[in-house]
Amino acid sequence: MTVAINSATKGVGPSMTALDGHQRSMRAPWIIGAPAAAWMGAALLTVLWPDHGGTDWDYTGSLAAAFAALGAVLACAVLVDHWFACLPRLHQVAPWMLALALLLGGWEAITAKLGLLPLPFFPPPQALLEVVIDDRTRLVEGVLASLRLLAAGYCLGAALGFAVGVAMGWSRAVGYWIQPILRLVGPLPATAWLPLAFFMFPSSYSASTFLIALATGFPVTVLTWSGVASVSKAYYDIARTLGGTQRFLILKVTLPAAMPHVFVGLFMGLGNSFAVLVVAEMLGVKSGLGWYLQWAQGWAAYANMYAALLIMALIFSGLITLLFRVRDRLLAWQKGLVRW
C-alpha cells in the first residue's frame, strides 16, 4: 500500500527531467551557446550588410541591437549554466531559440538585404518593429478594445451556457424545451447572425457582445448538459444516504463531477469567440485588432497587418494557456490529460 501511494504522489516525471537537464548542462554548453551565437550572428548580419537597392529602413539598428541583446543574455546564461548548472528550462527551449534566430536572420537576409521578395507585401522584420514602436498607441488601444469586448462576450456566454446546461441536465422539463431550440439554432455559426444583430442592437458593441456570447454559449451549454447528464447515479445515492439536500447534491456532486466536460465546452467556446471577435471587429465595431487589420489593409500597410496578426496570435494563445492553467488547478485530481 505504502509503495503504491509513494509512486503515485511523488511521481517520477519532474525529478527525472531535472536530472536530465542537469546532466545535459554538464556535458554540453553549446546547447545554449549555439542560440547565443546565432542571435549574435543575426545582429551582425543585420547591421553590417547594407540594405538592398538603397531602401533605408529606420529601425535596422534597433533590430540589430535587439538581436544582440538577446544573444548577450543567452551568452550570460551559458556562463551561469556552466558555473551553477541550474537552468533546465532554458535547455528545453534552446533548440527553439536557435531555430528562431535562424528564421529571423533568414527573413532579414531575403527581404531587407537581398530584396528577393516584392514589397510592400513582404516587409523585413525591422518594419514590424517600426510598426510596434511607432504605432504603439493605436495597437495598445486595439488590444484593450478587443480584450474588453472578448471578456464581456465570453464571460456572459460562458455563464449563461453553464447555467442553462446545468438546468437542462437537472430538470427534465427544461431539457424538453431547450433541447430542440439548441439543436436547431446551435449549428448556425454565430457570424450568420451578424447582419441581423447589427440591425437589432442599439450599438455595434452590444451586437458583437451578443454574438460572442452566442458563439461561446452553445458549446458550453451542450457540454455542461452532457457533463451533468453523465454524472454517475451512484454518486447521488452516496450523497443522499449521507443526508445531502438537493442544494448539496447540485453544488457538491453535480458541478464538480461535470467540471471536466464543462472545461471542454469552455475551450471550444474560447476558440469560437476568437473567430467571432475578429469578424465582428472587421465588419462593425470601429475598434480592436480586427478593425486595425481592416484599416491597415485599406492603407496597404502590410507591416502593420503582420504586426497585428502576431500580437493577436500571442494574445489568443496566452488566453488559451491561461484557461489551461485554471483547468489544471481546478481539476488537479484528474491527471494525464491533454497538455497545452
Binding site: 454518486y235 452516496i238 444516504t241 443526508g243 463531477a257 485530481w333
Partner: peptide
C-alpha cells in the same frame, strides 16, 4: 427516505474522485 442514521456501503467504494 434516506437518513444519515442509516448508512449504506456499496460493493463499489464510489469515492468522489475530485475530493
Amino acid at each position: 427516505g434516506p437518513d444519515a442514521s442509516r448508512i449504506i456501503v456499496f460493493q463499489d467504494p464510489t469515492l468522489y474522485p475530485w475530493r
